[in-house]
Simulated scan of single mutants.
Amino acid sequence: MMTAGVAALSKAERAEVVASIRAFDAFTPENDPHREHDFGAVEVGGVRCFWKIDAYDRDLRFGSPDPTDPAATVRVLTIMLAEEY
């Protein structure tokens, strides 16, 4: 998923943002204290974006009853401009 601000970026900018998120591995105790690897920030061409992963139930209506169970969970990645957070 992406927010309206990310959707308004050029196709090339969006591709760069997605590539940066795919390559992201800069997790530290300061930015990932629970070691869940479900949130991060990237900057591409002066545009700062956040990304987050949420765990929903199979119907995408509520939080997953057990995020550790792939049979009960759908994960959704959302990409947003920092100012949209």
Rank of each mutant, 00 (worst) to 15 (best):
M1R: 10
M1Q: 09
M2K: 11
M2C: 11
T3N: 11
T3C: 13
A7Q: 14
A7I: 10
A8N: 09
K11S: 15
A12Q: 14
E16N: 12
E16F: 12
E16H: 11
E16T: 06
A19L: 09
A19D: 13
S20D: 13
I21N: 14
A23T: 01
A23Q: 08
D25E: 13
D25N: 15
A26E: 15
F27C: 05
F27P: 02
T28K: 06
N31W: 12
D32P: 05
D32L: 08
H34Y: 15
H34V: 07
R35V: 14
E36L: 15
G40R: 05
G40T: 02
A41W: 02
A41M: 06
V42F: 00
V42K: 01
V42Y: 00
E43Y: 05
V44M: 04
V44W: 08
G45N: 03
G45S: 03
G46M: 05
G46N: 03
C49N: 01
F50A: 09
K52D: 09
K52Q: 11
I53L: 08
I53G: 01
I53F: 02
D54E: 14
D59C: 03
R61D: 01
D66S: 05
D66A: 08
D66Y: 01
P67I: 13
T68R: 07
T68E: 03
T68Y: 00
T68S: 05
D69H: 02
D69C: 05
P70I: 05
P70S: 04
A71S: 11
A71P: 02
A71T: 11
A71R: 09
A71C: 04
A72F: 00
V76H: 05
V76S: 06
L77G: 05
T78E: 11
L81I: 03
E83D: 12
Y85T: 01
